[in-house]
Design a binder for these strands. Sequence first.
DNA 1: GTCCTTTCCAACCGTTGGGTTGGGAGTATT
DNA 2: AATACTCCCAACCCAACGGTTGGAAAGGAC
Lengths: 200, 200
Amino acid sequence: MPYDPQRTRQAILDAAVEEFSAHGLAGARVGRIAARAKVNKERLYGNFGSKEELFDIVLARELARLAEALPLTDDQAADLPAYALAVHDYHRDHPHFIRLVHWEGLERGSAVAAGHPERAAHYRSRVEALARAQGRGDLPAGVAPAQLLYGIFAMAVWWAAVPQLTMMITGNADEGERRRALAAMAARLAQREERSGRPG
Amino acid sequence: MPYDPQRTRQAILDAAVEEFSAHGLAGARVGRIAARAKVNKERLYGNFGSKEELFDIVLARELARLAEALPLTDDQAADLPAYALAVHDYHRDHPHFIRLVHWEGLERGSAVAAGHPERAAHYRSRVEALARAQGRGDLPAGVAPAQLLYGIFAMAVWWAAVPQLTMMITGNADEGERRRALAAMAARLAQREERSGRPG
DNA sequence: GTCCTTTCCAACCGTTGGGTTGGGAGTATT
DNA sequence: AATACTCCCAACCCAACGGTTGGAAAGGAC
């Protein structure tokens, strides 16, 4: 059979994203990745060095895909519910990335943040878009833009990491209801006037 | 040395919660748990059957602690920001439970929800408290109470599961800022009047 | 066709994993 | 003080793990 190193690499990455997404770093099995990719284990080490490095590369690839598919333009920053829904739908349709990020957070902790300037830049650009929207008056100024982005992300993606909790909290609420509620809550975060509104 | 089976059990559970919280189900090492508890590995199996059963028991114990420490009274349901802060602070001060829940969600998936009626009841009671607050007019009726609870939880605890992302999004925002933003966002979710407020 | 490099594979390696075993030490019952 | 039962431990089991090795097959340069 003719050699096809490019195809080998690709097959390993495709298999690895499935395996890491399903089982995390500790739970993933190098042998399973090789088997699913129909490739010899040694090719994995020859191409990617180690299980951990492979995890990094897989995660970086998924982030690159997300970054391309889910920009945050100034238009979108002015329409927070629509952006929240876009984030939600992306992760619903591409469930690997958000799971990888959760595995990374749980297994490696906050120290990760220091070593990935390009990822930090990705999120910074989103924060800046929200800051500009605040400057234009399209978003309320009461909450720091970074915190606002955090809140939107939290509501839009958390269910993917804790499906069992989500089920217990919302019962068998269907996805339509979740999307509707997400949009409504994002709209509330985006409202311009704040009302104290709570009786002492 | 005199026997003390009660103490042995307790030591295993205390060691197990640390280990499972830090490494998850796949990453946890039975040998490490036994070593930390200063107990023979066999005592772990004699008392708890298997690694998985031990995980279940540890998680149930942590939920029981949370349920006692963090009720949701009707008073609190009427003051969503205060409740959100209470949830945030509990998980900040007792970081094991929320991590265990995330490990469970990632490793076992949504099927878990079906097998734990007592846990479902715990969350149902919280949803009902919010529903009553809506009935009294203390909370807006625009969002289903279960979805509202989901949103509050998501914002209040997500940072614990993805500390690296939180860091990249909010920079080195200190905890005080996070708490302030959380309260502000919860207040927005609790506002009674909705304003469309978005220019077409 | 010879030489050199790259791709690929089967078999292997040392270690560690969850889980078990056989028996000894402590305690309660009679 | 013999019996019986629970608690505990050191040593063991073996499958599976991440990672490596030696060499064969393929491709490119000349």
